[in-house]
Design a binder for these strands. Structure first.
Lengths: 110, 110
DNA sequence: TCTCATATATAAGAATCTTATATGTAAGGG
DNA sequence: CCCTTACATATAAGATTCTTATATATGAGA
């Protein structure tokens, strides 16, 4: 798995990206991020929950308590318009970072 | 320029990459990183000097005081064999991060 | 002399990650 | 019936690495 040192800031992009596909609760977000990145990117729930809280404060996502079929309470988050608007500049920024690092001598064969 | 949030961990790779080209002192490293990334990646010296110190503690780089032609004292760093060995797994890790983020819905057209 | 470029250094603070710990329900196996 | 695993959220303490602000000092050019 990718180490803690270099993955800072990825949670924000990961959460917004995952929520773009539809509303979701934290536990499932963590599972999907791990699944979709084939285990490369993995977040502990302890990292994810405070992040979700912060993103809600910034109005990028909005959470609501729901009760699932199996009777469990969970907090379902969905992207706000502001969150959706944040996505493309954020992706752009990551894209620029990749390019920048590639210029500092090839970052592998990526 | 790329924001502080997402560039964590890049300094390490940047320094090792720059030193791969030859020994260098901190001030010039900062200048070259900015130049080579066309201004996208920029480190303040206040971020760079402690980083160089930490990397020296880890034996990835080795510094020596030199006096330049113009009579200024400066600390010249060079890659150690250990530092050189660190470069390829580190690049690999970044490469995997890029791939992982790309899988979470395209990170722009990168 | 004043300012800019060179050159290094430290301090205080912010943000985001880590591991450890806590709580509670539901389902399945022995 | 009990134990373990999966589900689901939450907080605390600590590490790391970035930020801005500040300090020091020399050399060159206007």
């Amino acid at each position: 798995m990718i180490g803690a040192g270099i993955k800072r800031g990825t949670a924000e992009l990961a959460v917004l990206s995952i929520l773009e596909e539809g509303p979701l609760h934290g536990y499932e977000m963590a599972r999907r991020i791990e699944e979709q990145t084939k285990g490369a990117l993995r977040f502990t729930l302890a990292a994810l929950y405070p992040m979700l809280y912060r993103m809600e404060q910034r109005r990028w996502i909005r959470g609501s308590w729901e009760t699932s079929d199996n009777g469990r309470r969970r907090r379902c988050y969905r992207l706000t318009p502001a969150g959706r608007k944040k996505l493309s500049p954020l992706r752009q920024e990551w894209s620029e970072l990749f390019q920048a690092l590639r210029r500092l001598k090839k970052v592998a064969h990526a």
